[in-house]
Structure formats: structure tokens, C-alpha cells
């Protein structure tokens, strides 16, 4: 459903992505793993329309989406949950959810919010409080809930595990799998390669803007090169 072809992306003279090819098929969880500065966030930002690529193409559900503005990409069904959660700290939890549905004009927004509260009861308890008062894990749930309010077909998560306590890491990993069971395809950018490849069906390894390895998640996790480079074993 998502097809990224031969993408080149620059920040000024600095090349961030080079000849980048990646795909996410319907129903898949795909992990995009790599060290700091590899280019994971850049890819997600290009797909969601925050950055323009210099060359290459992005197709989503048989439509070309590169060059579209962020709101058009969102309406096409791609939601980007940004790195660092980026909840609106001085808006309430409820307002954060509502703003996730900003691009929608239908009448089921309230119902969707209630479903998200059912799914994340902590958010319901704190619906009237400022999002800034939530813990890191709760903020991540809010960021995911806010993303769900956009009714994505594909959800791109940028380092959702970063800075979370081990219990929370497990919890968010479960959430990602259950999103997938709801029928949402997932592109997961992560440095936590063990967990990411643990939940994903397929994975890509990025190094300085290029894909150096790709394959079935279990095979990647077992690959001696990957293990040595990223797990130190």
C-alpha cells in the first residue's frame, strides 16, 4: 500500500536519504531500524508531507502522494505520530484527541474518542487535564490515540519506545500489535531493534541515509551482522 521509490532527500547541501526504496503492504508491520541520525525521521517526514524530496516517488493506495501537503496526505489515510510524542501540552487530553480529527468532517468523531477512551482508560480518567501533566508513557498513548482519531490506514510511529520504562515498552509494543489487528498497517521507526523486530513482520536497516539490509523480521534479528552492529553480540 505504501511504496517509496528511489527517494533522495537533502537538508540544504546535506544529503539525508539516498536512493531510498521501501514498501509497506496492507496489514503489515514494518520496522525501520537504525542508529541516531540514520534518516528514519526524515523518511517519515517526507512521507507525511513535512519535507519535500529532491527526487523519487511515493505512492500510497495507488495514488502518488509525494509533493502533497500534510493535510492531503492525512486525508489519504497516512497518520504520522512524531518523535518525542509532541502532544500539545497546554491543551487538554480531550482537546488533543479532537485535534487529531481536525481533518475529518463526519459525525462520528465523538464516538471514536469514546472508543479510544475505552481502549486507553488512563486517558479517560484524565480527559480534562493538560496533556503536559501526563507521564511519558501516557503521552505516548495520547499521541497514538490522537493519531487514531485521524482514522489511518497506515500509521507511522517515530520512536514510540524512546525513554519509556521497560513495562511501558512492553505495553506500547502490545498496543502496536493490536492496532495492526484492527487492520491498520504500521511503519515503525525505532532504535530499539529487539522490540521493533519482535513485533514487526519485515524490517529495513538504515545507515546514513541508505538501506543496508532488509528482510523478514525474524531473519534480520537473527542475522549475525545485525546482531553485532546493533546488539553488540
Amino acid at each position: 500500500m505504501l511504496e517509496v521509490k528511489n527517494l533522495d532527500v537533502y537538508y540544504g547541501p546535506h544529503r539525508a536519504l539516498e536512493g531510498f526504496n521501501l514498501s509497506v503492504k496492507e496489514g503489515e508491520i514494518v520496522a525501520l531500524v537504525g542508529a541516531n541520525g540514520a534518516g528514519k525521521s526524515t523518511l517519515l517526514k517526507v512521507v507525511s508531507g513535512l519535507i519535500r524530496p529532491r527526487s523519487g516517488e511515493i505512492h500510497f493506495a495507488d495514488r502518488r502522494v509525494d509533493g502533497l501537503a500534510a493535510d492531503a496526505v492525512l486525508r489519504a489515510g497516512i497518520v504520522h505520530v512524531p518523535e518525542g510524542r509532541r502532544v500539545f501540552s497546554d491543551l487538554t487530553v480531550e482537546e488533543n484527541l479532537l485535534i487529531g480529527a481536525f481533518s475529518r468532517r463526519d459525525s462520528e468523531i465523538r464516538q471514536d474518542a469514546e472508543r479510544i477512551y475505552e481502549y486507553f482508560p488512563v486517558l479517560k480518567e484524565r480527559r480534562g487535564q493538560f496533556a503536559g501533566s501526563l507521564s511519558g508513557g501516557e503521552q505516548q498513548m495520547l499521541a497514538i490515540g490522537r493519531g487514531l482519531m485521524g482514522r489511518p490506514k497506515l500509521m507511522m510511529l517515530d520512536e514510540p519506545l524512546l525513554g519509556l520504562a521497560p513495562v511501558m515498552v512492553e505495553k506500547v509494543a502490545e498496543i502496536i500489535q493490536s492496532l495492526n489487528r484492527m487492520g491498520i498497517s504500521v511503519l515503525l521507526a525505532e532504535q530499539n531493534i529487539t522490540v521493533a523486530l519482535g513485533v514487526a513482520h519485515r524490517g529495513y536497516v538504515v545507515e546514513t541515509g541508505r538501506i543496508t539490509m532488509e528482510g523478514e523480521a525474524g531473519a534480520l534479528a537473527a542475522d549475525p551482522q545485525v546482531r553485532q552492529a546493533y546488539l553488540g553480540i
Binding site: 500534510a70 500539545f88 497546554d90 482537546e95 485535534i99 481536525f102
Partner: peptide, 23 residues
């Protein structure tokens, strides 16, 4: 207001506001 909420979001973080589909 719908756009009032959008204004507050843009005030806080315009890039994330753009990700929410706010013009």
C-alpha cells in the same frame, strides 16, 4: 471553536499542528 483549537495548537507547535491536517 474548531479554528480556535487550531490556533492554540499552531501557537504551541506548528509542525505537529500541520501533521494534524491543520492548514
Amino acid at each position: 471553536g474548531r479554528y480556535g483549537l487550531a490556533m492554540r495548537a499552531v501557537a504551541r507547535d506548528r509542525q505537529t499542528a500541520a501533521l494534524m491536517g491543520i492548514g
